[in-house]
């Protein structure tokens, strides 16, 4: 992205724009309570019936808690994501406290965190190789003495199988959040066992578990994050370059994706279904 002949003026302009006070969105005084009430309703509904149809309904009940300053000839309320129309926004222009700009110092996150489980072990965003490449190679010649519980592929990881539905994963108590909501499109979920072997699984709404992102897990052929390019090539002679990384066939309907770092070691390792459904944009 950086080009020595073109100083990163655009980057500077973007940072300046994102620091602009006009990004502040004033909210009505009742916004907090409405959100808290909305959350309570969601919880009650989930606990009571927990049919997914019921949950979808709760989402749109508490519309109109934010004030959007608008001219008197304001356009009609915008349609929300699911096509339903929300009630007009409540607070009158002029009664708008300038809350947003006070938050300018909050724009930078203190620590890089993983999305799924920013626990103590995940604070360093760099996935630490579990094993040095040399050791791995030795071990592999020894006849595969890597941790047998931490095998990624050829069609899943542990009890997580590619193509498994969100409900199967959740009801099988595989997800870190037992009350997780189903994916909208494609969303990542941390596993109940923690993030030592797998960062998260991405589940698509239409095809279920589509991608498993390894942290410490290894393939049946002994490749893990930190493995060298040579190890990968000797394990998978038919490795081929694709737009998002290098791919090797894992099983009948699945492949591995390897992303190498500047030292040609595996930085990221994924097991992916050949059909990704709504996760296909990666």
């Amino acid at each position: 992205m950086s080009n020595p002949h073109e100083p990163d003026e655009l980057g500077e302009d973007l940072r300046r724009l994102f620091a602009d006070d006009r990004l502040a969105v004033p909210h009505a005084s009742g916004a907090r309570d409405a959100i808290v009430a909305g959350a309570q309703r969601r919880r009650r509904r989930r606990r009571a019936a927990s049919s997914s149809a019921a949950m979808a309904g709760v989402l749109m009940l508490a519309g109109g808690v934010f004030a959007i300053p608008a001219p008197s000839d304001a356009p009609p309320p915008v349609a929300s994501s699911d096509g339903t129309e929300r009630p007009p926004l409540t607070q009158r222009p002029g009664a708008t406290p300038d809350r947003g700009s006070a938050d300018a110092t909050d724009r930078r996150l203190p620590e890089p965190q993983t999305f799924a489980d920013p626990g103590p072990g995940a604070e360093n965003a760099e996935p630490a190789p579990q094993t040095a490449p040399e050791t791995l190679a030795e071990r592999r010649e020894d006849g595969m003495t890597l941790d047998a519980d931490s095998v990624l592929g050829p069609d899943g990881y542990g009890r997580v199988r590619l193509g498994m539905t969100f409900e199967e994963a959740r009801d099988g108590e595989l997800l870190a959040d037992p009350d997780a909501e189903p994916p909208e499109g494609c969303e990542p979920y941390a596993l109940a066992e923690g993030t030592e072997s797998v960062w998260h699984v991405r589940i698509s709404e239409d095809l279920g578990v589509a991608v498993i992102s390894a942290s410490g897990a290894h393939t049946p052929e002994g490749i893990t994050t930190g493995s060298s390019r040579e190890d990968v090539e000797s394990a998978y002679p038919r490795l081929r370059a694709e737009s998002g990384g290098y791919h090797a066939i894992a099983g009948e309907d699945a492949h591995y994706r390897f992303v190498f770092d500047n030292h040609n070691d595996v930085q990221q390792l994924f097991l992916r279904g050949d059909r990704l459904g709504q996760c296909a944009w990666d």
Partner: peptide
Amino acid sequence: PHDAADLVQTVLEKVGSRWSDLQRRTQD
């Protein structure tokens, strides 16, 4: 700002409905 309000409300309500779980799992 309209979509911003929509998005914030949706995500906060989801998060708030399992607030104690989230706090157990994350510092931030």
